[in-house]
């Protein structure tokens, strides 16, 4: 008993019993990330409802505005699938990680998730350049403003998520990736991936 000198030891430790522990809901890193994601969810909910209100109050025939380019439905449909695959691969990597599988079984799906996610962002960027070239700019119409606003906000989140995945990859290679950090990053990436089909449905379809 006398050896207990840790600073967080409770005042009263009954002889022989386990010292009472501080109970955690989930790890602090994950809880913090989940709260952050809730905020982001409301942020996008705000954007989508603003978009829906403006769209539904536009005079007949004015939405999308005549003379403005149409959004690339099919190509974006494909990149949506690519992004979903990226999300699934990230989960595979997490599964291998939490089962303490060999490094390669964690790294391979993780890198694949990174590559697929990055290609999603790149294709989006190329499409943006084309649309801007064809006259769909932020200023041209509220249609354009909302498009760049919503899709751009998602793209920023995707970039942040990719950076976080890359960080996990590096930490794991160094053998220093804490499960709680990986779980938090996975939550972020899952949010980015799962949000996109909803945005696609609202903005493109």
């Amino acid at each position: 008993m006398t050896a207990i000198s840790a600073p967080m030891m409770p005042l009263e430790v009954k002889g022989g019993a386990e010292p009472p522990a501080r109970r955690q809901l989930v790890s602090s890193a994950t809880l913090g990330m989940l709260i952050f994601i809730a905020v982001e969810l409301m942020f996008f909910a705000g954007l989508i409802s603003a978009f829906t209100i403006v769209k539904s109050t536009a005079p007949p025939g004015a939405w999308p505005p005549p003379g403005q380019p149409r959004l690339p439905l099919e190509l974006t449909g494909i990149t949506t699938l690519v992004l979903l695959c990226s999300g699934a691969l990230a989960w595979l990597s997490w599964r291998a990680f939490s089962r303490r599988a060999a490094t390669a079984r964690v790294t391979r799906p993780l890198v694949a998730a990174l590559v697929l996610g990055a290609s999603f962002v790149v294709v989006q960027g190329v499409e943006w350049l084309r649309l801007v070239g064809e006259g769909l700019t932020m200023r041209a119409s509220t249609y354009g403003s909302f498009f760049y606003m919503i899709v751009g906000a998602h793209a920023l989140h995707a970039l942040a998520g990719l950076a976080a995945l890359a960080w996990c990859w590096r930490r794991h290679a160094a053998g220093r990736l804490a499960p709680s950090s990986f779980a938090a990053v996975l939550a972020l990436w899952t949010f980015v991936v799962a949000l996109w089909p909803a945005l696609y449905a609202v903005v493109y379809l």
């Binding site: 709260i35 809730a38 905020v39 982001e40 969810l41 409301m42 942020f43 996008f44 909910a45 705000g46 954007l47 409802s49 603003a50 403003s145 606003m149 906000a153």
Partner: peptide
Amino acid sequence: MVSVGPLVAGAAM
């Protein structure tokens, strides 16, 4: 946290 998201969206706009 729950209420501020939409306002941040509005502020950006």
